Simulated assay, not measured.
Amino acid sequence: MLLASMAQADPLRIATFNTELSRKGPGLLLRDILRGDDPAVASVMDAILSIAPDIIVLQGIDYDLEGRALNALADSLTAAGLSYPHRFAGPPNAGRQSDLDLDGDGKRSGPGDAQGYGRFFGQGAMAILSQHPFVLNELQDFSAFLWKDLPDTLYPMVNGTPFAGLDAQGAQRLSSNSHWSLPVQTPEYGSVTLLTYHATPPVFDGPEDRNGRRNHDETAFWRHHIEGRIGTTPKGPFILLGDANLDPHRGDGRGEAITSLLTHSALQDPLPDIPTVNWPRTGPMRVDYILPSRDWQIVDAGVHWAKGDVASRHALVWVDLTR
């Protein structure tokens, strides 16, 4: 009976979307959402309402300790007819000051000295909205995982010593935002684990290629996780999704990291070679991904481009799944 009911179940629609809603200071995003007339917020809401995913991972949304900005966005979606009663946003590395010179510029307390780039704590962070409850007691938050502890780490070395010094290497976390493994309890498919992150851009650094190396390793982390070398691998079906800031063929990043996931035997790629971002300097690239585990059946998939003069440069990426 269980197999029959699952065969008849509606597909689970999963999405990821870099909203680019981040503001220049704390509290400003909440202010703009509450005003109800911000064109960028309206564009993001229109995109989400158009696709109506069951679960959506958001990037580029500012974090605050009480979740007010995220709740305001979710409440606005509810008022528009799409309810997300379950909301998650853990404390990120974005803007989390280290009190060290992590970027090697000889200064401390700048945005590049935070564990993840940010002018204030939580700038441009991540969040999840879901129609189904999270299994929070099974959350694995890898945000404090140290970069140097990643197997085969590419932490930059200069003349045989760690870039920015031993203290920086000893404190530098891998995640520029967060790495989360979070199960969601769905009525049709049981517990479904989301593996999600938002990697740093592989540019804006020096000859040491600190950002390029970190971007590579933030994506390579997931291969180590699903192969059992870091943390506890998902017990059942899972979905790896987020903004890798990395195209397998184009751009300045080390594309082999994402290629190793796109070709991994445990994963499948619903949207091969489909651009998900259009930056003026680079043109269309693929940097946003949804990679379901092999035990899913892909029903449909696509990208949806937000509208408006201040719309996100990223598309909302979605996939419909059954088992």
Rank of each mutant, 00 (worst) to 15 (best):
Q131G: 12
I51R: 14
F142G: 03
D99A: 14
W147Q: 07
M126P: 04
L129M: 14
V57Y: 04
H86C: 10
D54K: 02
G124L: 05
Q123R: 15
I61H: 08
A114K: 02
L102P: 01
P85M: 11
G106A: 08
F120W: 09
D103E: 03
G60C: 04
S130K: 09
P91R: 14
A74D: 12
G90P: 11
Q97F: 14
L77E: 05
I55T: 07
D64T: 10
L100I: 13
A114Y: 07
R87E: 11
H132L: 05
L77D: 06
A69F: 00
S76A: 15
I51C: 07
S83W: 07
A69C: 10
G95A: 07
R108W: 01
G81C: 13
Q140A: 13
Y84E: 06
M126T: 13
A69H: 03
D99K: 12
Q131H: 06
K148V: 11
D62L: 01
D152K: 11
V57Q: 08
D62I: 10
I55Q: 01
Q140I: 03
E66A: 10
A89E: 05
T153E: 00
A144F: 07
A114W: 07
P92T: 09
L139A: 14
Q140C: 06
Y63M: 12
A79Y: 07
F88P: 02
P151Y: 13
G122A: 05
P151N: 10
Q131N: 11
F88M: 08
S83P: 01
L129K: 05
P85F: 00
L77R: 04
G104V: 10
G95T: 03
S83R: 13
G106F: 10
S98W: 08
K148F: 07
S50K: 14
G110T: 15
G106Y: 11
L129V: 11
G122T: 04
F88T: 00
Y63W: 15
P85N: 06
L77Y: 01
I56A: 01
L129A: 02
S130E: 04
A94I: 04
I128T: 15
P92E: 11
R87G: 09
R119C: 07
L154T: 08
G67L: 10
A52Q: 14
G95C: 03
F88A: 09
R96I: 00
L146D: 05
L49T: 12
D113Y: 10
F142H: 14
I48C: 02
D141Q: 00
K148L: 12
A74G: 13
I48V: 15
G124R: 02
L139F: 07
V57P: 00
P91N: 11
R119K: 15
D62F: 00
E66R: 08
L102W: 04
P53E: 04
Q97G: 11
L146Y: 09
D105P: 02
D62G: 03
S143K: 09
A125P: 01
L136V: 08
E138W: 07
A89H: 04
F120G: 08
A127V: 05
F134K: 04
S143V: 08
T153I: 02
S76G: 13
V57A: 15
G60N: 05
F134C: 05
L82N: 13
Y84L: 09
Q59T: 10
